[in-house]
Design a binder for these strands. Structure first.
Lengths: 213, 213
DNA sequence: CCGGATCCCCAGGGATACTG
DNA sequence: CAGTATCCCTGGGGATCCGG
């Protein structure tokens, strides 16, 4: 990792996480939680395995992730973020919010993962009914699945499938994301190919909160 | 600029501003306001002129900066951020806040600019006395000068010198930054070589605000 | 199959020189 | 002053191979 050599907080931060792929590795570990080398690699389509290897090593040296050798019968290495690694979440949030403007068009050769889409609402939306019952939205896009969990004033996302979701969204990534972020209304999303199963009133729980400056 | 090819807001953002030096170019234009090629270059010690040239071109193509040919007698090109470029400020703020942890030690070969130090308090501090009189702190570090202006609940920073500052801070960068951010108290900063001229009560106006999640 | 290591190749970045 | 042009070199992409 080449350094900028500037006594500036921003430059110092970029010395650590400014290399190519580094922030995306953090994104995957943040969204997936502790996981294996291959899981991280699957979440980063396009990365070369040797590069992921060196990135994980660098991140460990920087104290942003820790590696743990799980004992048999698992017998594999588990990677997870440290507290300082998780402290990068505000950075991912700010970057993600700014990047939303570039999501209005989908490229045909883009890779898509459902949990990338599920992550977006957590940046700027707040639970509009904090005292309401817990609600679960299931996302199915591009063959992958992710879950948005709403309750107690919080919005969280995770990889996987929920047993009994209140609402299931299926369709092209652009339609799913557009509806979740409010960039596209329900009619528009339907026209783009979105399918809804369940109580669509749950969507009202995702209300954009004031964007912190 | 190589693309990640992922339909993810974070990856899309990094496609635009993830290249080396790019965010630091934005930092300079944000802190300096509209300025010339050489001004930007002076604010980015270590960058090669050809690289700055291509970065400015890329940023213009992306719509983050605009270039303006000033008429004679100036007869030079002025670069400045567009609204979308300025919209990156929350990103710089999040990155800068996270990077503060790496500022506790100074490297001997680090470049320093006073306005980098002056920028930090604007990230997490709020004017503790919004109804109080406007106050000005002059920074002098590493031969350069920057100003922090406090008033009306806002904290702002800029390059240069103020005519009648309420307080002037002089000394090694680490001491100046440490005092401004609260990482070092007054006694500690003095021991590191900090000199204060004027009303040091002004420092109480810089009170850390709640860190937005 | 998992978790890498090794090799080759090329584009992007760094240093310097040069020009309108 | 405001950039281009040039050369060199490293870091990253891609494929393949290897030990557990």
């Amino acid at each position: 990792m080449r350094r900028y050599g500037q006594y500036c907080s921003i430059a110092r931060a970029l010395d650590v996480v400014g290399d190519r792929w580094t922030l995306l590795v953090v994104r995957e570990l943040l969204l997936r939680g502790p996981c294996r080398f291959t899981d991280v690699k699957n979440g980063l389509p396009g990365i070369a395995s040797n590069l992921l290897s060196t990135r994980l090593k660098d991140l460990e040296d920087s104290g942003l992730i820790s590696r743990e050798h799980a004992p048999p019968p698992i017998a594999t290495t588990i990677y997870q973020l440290t507290d300082n690694g998780r402290a990068l979440e505000p950075v991912l949030k700010a970057v993600g919010l700014w990047g939303l403007q570039y999501m209005t068009h989908e490229r045909s050769d883009d890779a898509v993962q459902a949990h990338w889409l599920a992550y977006a609402p957590t940046w700027f939306a707040a639970d509009a009914d904090p005292d309401g019952p817990a609600a679960v939205i299931q996302l199915v896009a591009a063959g992958a699945e992710a879950v948005i969990e709403i309750g107690g004033g919080q919005i969280a996302s995770r990889v996987g499938r929920a047993p009994h979701p209140d609402l299931t969204l299926t369709g092209p990534p652009r339609a799913v994301l557009g509806l979740l972020t409010g960039m596209i209304d329900l009619n528009g999303a339907r026209k783009l190919g979105l399918t809804l199963h369940g109580r669509r009133g749950v969507l009202a729980r995702l209300r954009p909160a004031a964007n912190p400056a």
